[in-house]
């Protein structure tokens, strides 16, 4: 049975009929067609599918699409497009934080959630904030640096 679903996806209303079993991840990727959100494990272990749900970082693979009824969802596509990267995205680019790029959307959203709550995080907070996001390429070292730079860029941008 399909249910009508309507939610705010990156500032636009996304509406469709979905089965109850449809995950938010599947809705985002297949119904809304935004494939930047990645399917890495579907068990909430890797963070590849992380999105912001009403501003909070969540694994979209562990959420029914219907649970997001009427809520606001932000995916990597909502942060900035290739021609207008957000400060967080720019910081990752400048820092050489992206290798294969598969974990990066989740990392960017984890960073965004962190900096929204804690604009000037120390390294321990940064590590904690991305501890639900696995990366197999970078050894995290440059991702941590990128987040430090992102905090600075956001800070500078506001001054």
């Amino acid at each position: 049975m399909k249910h009508p679903l309507s939610l705010n996806l990156n500032g636009d209303m996304a509406e469709n009929l979905v089965e109850a079993r449809t995950s938010l991840l599947t809705f985002i990727r297949e119904s809304a067609g935004l494939t930047g959100t990645k399917r890495g494990c579907e068990e909430g272990e890797c963070g590849g599918c992380a999105v912001l749900l009403d501003g909070r970082l969540v694994d979209s693979c562990l959420i029914l699409a219907l649970e997001a009824q009427g809520k606001t969802v932000t995916t990597v596509e909502g942060l900035g497009d290739p021609h207008h990267l957000s400060p967080v995205q720019s910081a990752f680019a400048e820092s050489g934080a992206s290798q294969c790029g598969f974990c990066i959307p989740g990392m960017l959203l984890a960073t965004t959630a962190l900096l929204d709550r804690e604009p000037d995080p120390d390294e321990a907070s940064i590590r904690e904030a991305i501890s639900g996001n696995l990366c197999r390429c970078t050894g995290y070292t440059r991702i941590v640096k990128a987040i430090q730079l992102a905090a600075k860029l956001k800070h500078d941008g506001q001054n």
């Binding site: 909430g44 992380a50 562990l62 984890a110 959630a113 991305i130 501890s131 639900g132």
Partner: peptide, 9 residues
């Protein structure tokens, strides 16, 4: 209890 995405849910 897991990382931030889990703890938020």
């Amino acid at each position: 209890v897991g990382g931030p995405p889990i703890r938020n849910r």
